[in-house]
Nucleic acid binder design. Structure first.
Lengths: 223, 223, 223, 223
DNA sequence: TCATAAACGAGACGGTACGTCTCGTCTTGTG
DNA sequence: CACAAGACGAGACGTACCGTCTCGTTTATGA
């Protein structure tokens, strides 16, 4: 195993003071939060993560910059907090074949990429993740949660006898979205429905072949 | 097609003055360049892209900060310039099967990730790419160049009749490395030889099934 | 006359609401006041005027900061209010000579300077006085009040025929303490009984010579 | 001896980096310095020490605030630096009597107080001195330097046989100015030529009586 | 080999954003 | 329903880093 996780700092986030916004989470506090998150998203869309400034967020949110620093401290924290606010749910129509379901997932991923707000946020997360363990963990969690809701497609496929028992749903979803994410967030190559469908087909094929059966992963190759 | 490339700025890099370091590229000039690039790499390893400071690079390279600004201007440019300096070449032993070759490629990718210097640089590139079109293009080119040398495996496989004629070599390689890159640079999940081999197997399977035949990509799905 | 008083701001202290703490000056109200004043004094001793913070005073007094703001509004007001709380009285033993009495006064001034609490407060007053007219007036009053009780020594000396009739008691006291205050609060040079006694001697000498006879002050010099 | 000096902080001003402005003290550097000092003085006159803001100084001096922080760090340092820039010299005409000379000194002190710029600066110094040992030392030095040039009046008076040999010039000057400083910077009572002349007369009288003979100070009183 | 233009070194500065610290006010939820 | 505690607005602070400018020095390079 080449690596686990490249954490570095010990994150001295110990429970000192209970962070503003937690103690009295109603009324103004909540309004402020929404207002800031929305402003942050707008700034991400307009300027991108690297050129997003906290004071500009505060201005746009009609909030004192001090408040932003008090509540979030860093831009990274704001972006991470946006995850909840953006809460995305992919609903798949329980199609008759695994490939159909995966195609739905893949197309949804591409569609999200077409949404400027979501795309800007996701880009920001990727950029932040490459720099900080905290963002890394957060992004990891968000994606895991999303997979959670789509991995049921695999369960059903197992029930239908379409793929071998023991097939790891998460792994199948990963295989489906990986080529898309590569293009979208790393090489910035064009992504469309063609790519989505091809990725779904490849993942379904491999799943049917039993490549994602848990445990078989241990010896690595299947065939 | 959901997107092409999300460039924004026109990059006003017009040929004003001929950029220091090009006119007299010998002796001290060359020494300076190497020294700075090496220092930059070390800083990337130590602090990560987000916390790498130009002045610290200059200090470490025993060079005036002014010089760094004159020659590269931005950290991003330095990181991009590092691409040449890190020149990686994956040599595959022309094995008897496509899957074998892909496995070699995948394992090489994982091995590179195990190299702290290369990993730090690649993380920096991903982070920068998420923010700037220039970095995006550069990263895109680097990866394309790498694929160039490994895509021959597919050509040979076609010759052997292992995969259908018209199969797109680049696409096969992309399919091979995508799950690894996803784990390495986006979700920060563990990556090892197991994952490498599984990715290679899946890509080979899909290639054999004709999923990566050029032109068929147009209508998207291959059945 | 080079100057009168360097007031600037109009002091918008007009009688709007009757200031909290004036209406019901018993029980808790009084306890709070004492507690805050004492805390303020302690903070002055510990940190000095420039580094004394209202919230720290509140903490130490076990009182809500809001209360402090309501009652005093500014640190300056607290310091001014401390004047009463510190009420100092110099009792002179009605000695046989003016110089003796003045020596008592001078030594008392030096002794007060040796008291950390009083010294801290006095330093604060001087510092505040250099900045605000209100503090200036307050300090002026405090010192005038102190002189009031000691100037009787001059009245008695006049009665004894030791100094000419019409000698201004306040002026004699001023002359006595001036060199000490100069050292203590302006040049921060050492001050001890030697200086006290010398100042008393000089003031007594000048008083006997009739330098402080009222009216003669008009033409300034007394020969 | 009640006290020496009320220093507190260890002043971590050790020779780390040689502070900007010392290495290349010509041209722009010098212009910047003058510009800032002049602006600072103007702000002191307009707003007083307590309400002088560094960024406003920078604005007025048409200099980046960063530069001010780099060169001086604190307002206190600027005010201290102003001492040199304001370089005051009292020239006394070598009159025939000590009292005449002292009168010149006293009147000069009052006249300086009439100069708004000098008065604002001196008030600032007093205020700062009450808060920081560094300012205290600086003010102390400035005043000592001024006395240095006027204390010669006493030397000449000794030569003329007007005052006893061994009379301490500095102490005589202190006695002269003390009542004026008390009124000007502590009690803010009016000060004019009348007070100046009276103070000069009293100091001269005490000096002639031998009160300021060095060594006699040890046992304190002279009589 | 030597003149000269290129590249570098070093100090200072302008400017942006950051993150913090206070002060004093306003708001909220709880006793 | 009052009020203590929480959250906020405003403003200044001091710092970090970026990128530029200036001037003086060193060093390639080609005539």
């Amino acid at each position: 195993m080449a690596t686990e996780d490249f954490d570095t700092a010990p994150e001295p986030d110990g429970a000192g003071a209970p962070a503003p916004g937690t103690r009295r989470p109603g009324g103004r506090t909540a309004r402020t939060r929404v207002s800031v998150l929305e402003a942050a998203l707008a700034e991400l869309v307009e300027h991108g993560y690297a050129d997003t400034r906290i004071d500009r967020i505060a201005d746009r949110a009609k909030v004192a910059a001090t408040t932003v620093y008090r509540r979030w401290g860093t831009l990274e924290n704001i972006v991470v907090d946006l995850a909840d606010h953006l809460a995305v749910s992919i609903t798949l129509g329980s199609g008759p074949t695994l490939e159909g379901d995966l195609r739905t997932v893949a197309r949804a991923v591409v569609a999200l990429y077409g949404n400027p707000a979501h795309r800007a946020w996701q880009c920001a997360m990727v950029s932040a993740a490459a720099a900080s363990p905290k963002a890394r963990r957060a992004l990891s969690e968000v994606l895991a949660k999303r997979r959670e809701s789509t991995a049921v497609a695999v369960t059903e496929a197992i029930a239908r006898g379409e793929v071998p028992p023991g097939t790891d749903g998460h792994e199948v979803i990963r295989a489906t979205v990986a080529p898309l994410y590569l293009r979208m967030y790393i090489t910035a190559e064009p992504v469309g429905e063609a790519e989505a469908d091809r990725a779904a087909a490849a993942a379904a094929l491999a799943a049917r072949a039993g490549l994602y059966v848990v445990g078989r992963a241990e010896d690595g190759t299947a065939r």
